[in-house]
Design a protein around this nucleic acid. Structure first.
Lengths: 251, 251
DNA sequence: TTTGGATAGTGTAAATTTGACACAAAGCTA
DNA sequence: TAGCTTTGTGTCAAATTTACACTATCCAAA
């Protein structure tokens, strides 16, 4: 008897899919993990698409998003937020799209609603070439993406906007950084997400005053310039802070 | 040949529904338009539910939400915002829920994803008793709602939170007020949505400095106290303001 | 007509936050 | 050891936020 007996008879729901905008940060700019659909689509439209799949009838939406992420990257327990539902009846236009859908077991004629999620991943935890399943996946800088398959470009824009708003309310950016990071890296991260320059000194002053960083007695090594001090995110301090109702992490 | 030939064969999609959180403001508190499902459910669970319905295969999600709103209230061109998708596979528990679903032509066995929207309505534009279709609909103060059918209570909470965040970025509250309103009414509206008291003088100073209100040379009449001046929302000034990138309407 | 009840409308001072701005220190490399 | 690169730091002026109390105006009831 397995854990979830329902799973035995579980079927893919032909009408509902989940797409994931998997954000990473290469310490310079915001990136997204995209699937290259290959030659099959090159003559018709964009090769790149968001990872996604149909959902099973016995899983809820968050589970489905986590599954898609797990299947692609092997990562679990990742920060995940819903962007919303997308579903123009004519969102699938091209022959190439139909071929692609067949290849992932979806029914190309069906009208599909997709529920989009974004996730925040520490890029160093996942290198595409390490996964056999995802040999066609790769990190692409957000600003270089001009088009995507289906309505995925629209979804990406919506995800960026949600992230931008969310980070003003909750310091979720730490999910994109390694455990130890420098203030400059955090600074560049905020600039990437908010898509505007932030004054260095003012940024540091403000983030330090929040008192949710633990300063480590440790410096960067091997950089060809003055090494930076390293910091950790302080979960406990953050919890204390929010329990007072504080929700202004904006710049 | 009609505009959209697909419409001829349009069918209800048994897997996807739309639910609407229709917010109103009775000049005292925030309210929501709910459907009373009647005796059929009284022995089993909450009678009250959000208005909603399955979507047609040929309409997009926003259209479906507008349709639900229109069918219930006759209102068109209403401010509308997506809350998100909800869809636990086991969100329909009770026999009464199945009965109810049958009565709105939904398939009770199917796994249904629902896409929730919230809308902002000027309450005076719609009095439930005026509509024959919606003889079982009524405005209920948000703070008095303790439970709802299905997962609608969860949806309502999410909608409230979205609204709270949104009003800090865009002055959408005016959609809940009549064309002419007083600063005190606007003040109470913000307090209702943000769910916290706001200092009267500070509120007035801040909202006036935004310069998106037109002061009318007209007073309230028939109130048993000093009558208030009336104001209108100034759409043009608002557009000017936002075109500079301004997005801080928060309190 | 007078009085009492209710809400509208108004200003200021202190504290906090924001925004603009420049240079010395530390490590690496050639 | 000289030069390159990035880190790390302080101040001042302006703007914003917070806390706070009394008079004015209308209606209703006596």
């Amino acid at each position: 008897m397995q854990h979830n007996p329902k799973k035995i008879n579980s079927e893919l729901n032909p009408n509902v899919s989940v797409d994931c905008v998997i954000f990473g940060f290469d310490l310079e700019q915001l990136t997204v993990l995209l699937i290259d659909r290959g030659e099959i689509s090159s003559a018709f439209g964009p090769r790149l698409a968001l990872p996604g799949n149909l959902i099973y009838d016995n899983e809820n939406l968050d589970m489905a998003a986590n599954r898609v992420l797990d299947e692609l990257t092997g990562l679990k327990n990742i920060y995940l937020e819903q962007v919303g539902a997308f579903g123009d009846p004519d969102r699938i236009h091209k022959e190439s799209d139909r071929e692609w859908l067949k290849s992932i077991r979806a029914e190309p004629e069906a009208r599909v609603i997709t529920v989009a999620y974004y996730t925040l991943v520490t890029m160093s935890q996942y290198k595409p070439q390490a996964s056999s399943f995802a040999k066609n996946a790769d990190w692409v800088p957000v600003n270089e993406i001009k088009e995507l398959a289906f309505d995925h470009f629209e979804i990406l824009q919506a995800a960026k906007e949600k992230l931008k708003q969310k980070i003003k309310i909750q310091p979720i950016g730490f999910n994109l950084l390694p455990e130890k990071f420098t203030l400059s890296q955090l600074h560049r991260l905020y600039e990437s997400i908010l898509d505007k320059p932030l004054d260095k000194r003012n940024f540091r002053r403000k983030i330090q005053k929040l008192d949710i960083l633990t300063s480590l007695r440790e410096k960067q090594r091997g950089v060809p310039h003055k090494p930076s001090l390293l910091y950790k995110f302080n979960e406990e301090k953050y919890q204390e802070l929010t329990q007072t109702g504080f929700d202004n992490f904006g710049f």
